[in-house]
Design a binder for these strands. Sequence first.
DNA 1: AACTACCTCAACCGCGATAGC
DNA 2: AGCTATCGCGGTTGAGGTAGT
Length: 269
Amino acid sequence: MEMEVKATERISVEMRKVPWSSDEDSKLIHYIALHGQGRWDSLAHFAGLKRTGKSCRLRWLNYLRPNLRRGKITPQEQLLIVLLHFRFGNRWAKIAENLPGRSDNDVKNYWRTKVQKHAKELHCDVNGQLFQDFLLYQWLPSLAEQIHATATSSSQEHDDNMWNTEVNLNTPNFVQTGINGSTNITCPNVVSSTNSFEAEVMTVTLIDDSDIWTSLSSFEDGIISDFSSPDMAVYEDQYYCHNYWASATSEIFPDETLCLDDMDLWLFP
DNA sequence: AACTACCTCAACCGCGATAGC
DNA sequence: AGCTATCGCGGTTGAGGTAGT
């Protein structure tokens, strides 16, 4: 027991548990630039950092690695987080995979400080049906509205990023355009109906070619052109996405064979 | 200006999974 | 097969910043 206490004391003295200094950041960045990441414990040692490997890994992934997005979570990102949380639950890393430049920590922090807090205010269990309904029928439409307002009020104020959206409010057709390697899909926005909001959801999630929505580039003029896949496991996300898209737009394209149940599959697997 | 309450987010902790010996 | 080291993830904490009074 005495040995254990001493070991703990030694660690607390040697291993810093304070914010990272710019000097430490530089050391870590420099070392990873030369040798790459991985083997975090030995990396910490050889980089001359008095930190645990875990600490170095966390600092790198959450703060130092290239292409991290800083600043507030945008309404588009919020919307994606909520939607993906329906599907993945508290699997923050999984959700973060679909938010380019955001870490699992960012997603987790957002959920905790915003969504969970709201559930608390409503005296709801964050995972209960009541709050799920609130998210689906109030929170998400509200986000969609924000996105819509931003997109229409200041098209010139684009956020220099992949969330660049084109929203066509009146034309009852889908328009697909490829801009800077992205796939932009525009769909009608019929504010009064539930389905319309869902359609708008799809509008803002089809943008980045690097994530699960990429597969939707196979859509042509809003019609699903090809969805037969020899390997459904690989294209699972595509499948869900396809169903969601189809159901969300069923009002506009009544000929579509997929129904709302398929959307439920996507949202509540 | 000073105090307080609240918010944000960087950082740490614990645990399970995996790899290597 | 069993042990140990390491990694990665989700949960939690708390310092610092900000808004409100």
